[in-house]
Amino acid sequence: MKLYYSPGACSLASHIILNEINVDFDLEKVDLKTHKTEKGTDYYQINPKGYVPALEINPGLILTETIAILPFLAQHDPKQDLIPPSGLGRAKVLEWLGYLSSELHDAYAVFFGEPLHDEAKAKAYAGIDRLLTYINKAIAESDNDYLVDDNFGPADAYLFVLTNWSNSIGHDLTPYPEIVALRNQVAARQSVQIAMRDEGLIL
């Protein structure tokens, strides 16, 4: 398999899960401004949508969209720890992935377009805070070690990556202690440390 990624983008979640399932895979970096890969390929020829991630499963067979790629990769976990094979547990993973993709991802993405004036920035921060308040409360009211159950999974990787963007936009996560605690658990995983080093995000 090959993952097309941009450092620190949402593709980092797929990179983390690839490390978790311990399969052989290649990485190819994409410049999202020029839409060229590091090998000089026109990225639109790989993914006509133009954004990351894209997962080449076999030559010519491409899967896109984080909420599709993450469960696909997680189901390759030989221990079935990353995602339940069926039933309500699997549905809960998909529920979280859908919420993170349609709500939290979009809320952060506002900051990565045209520069925001002060009023728009304050409104965008408030939007993120509203979503994080919900997530923090959900974690606090749960007896699970992670978002869905006691096992790390794709939703945890995705939440980690999205909230990591707070560092880039000057957003404070300290009002959300449950999220910070979960982030610290995730950050300590070898799969995360390797992915972040490979993408040049940490030394």
Rank of each mutant, 00 (worst) to 15 (best):
Y134D: 10
I57M: 13
V93R: 03
S101Y: 00
D81I: 15
D129M: 13
A68P: 03
E65F: 06
K137H: 09
E119G: 08
D145H: 08
A122E: 12
D156N: 03
K121G: 13
G50V: 13
A120Y: 10
Y125C: 15
I83Y: 03
G87A: 10
P84V: 12
E38F: 10
L132V: 04
E65A: 10
A91H: 04
E38K: 11
Y43Q: 09
Y99Q: 07
A91M: 05
D118L: 10
E65V: 12
P48R: 09
L97Q: 00
S102F: 01
D149E: 05
P84T: 14
E95R: 07
Y125K: 15
P53T: 11
Y44Q: 15
I128G: 03
A109S: 10
Q75T: 14
I57V: 15
E114P: 02
Q45I: 15
A126M: 11
N144Q: 07
L159E: 01
Y134M: 13
Y43D: 04
G60E: 01
A155G: 06
S86T: 12
L73D: 03
E103A: 01
T64L: 12
P115N: 02
T66P: 06
Y125R: 13
A74P: 03
Y158I: 08
A109K: 10
D145G: 13
G153Y: 03
Y134W: 02
P154H: 03
P84F: 04
L73R: 02
L147S: 10
A138E: 13
S142V: 14
A140H: 02
P71E: 07
K123G: 12
G60Q: 00
G113V: 10
P84Q: 09
I57K: 14
A126E: 12
Q80I: 15
Q75M: 12
L73E: 01
R90H: 06
E56V: 12
A74M: 11
F111Q: 05
L82D: 07
L73K: 01
K137G: 10
H105I: 03
F160S: 09
A68G: 08
K123I: 15
S86K: 08
L104W: 00
N136Y: 06
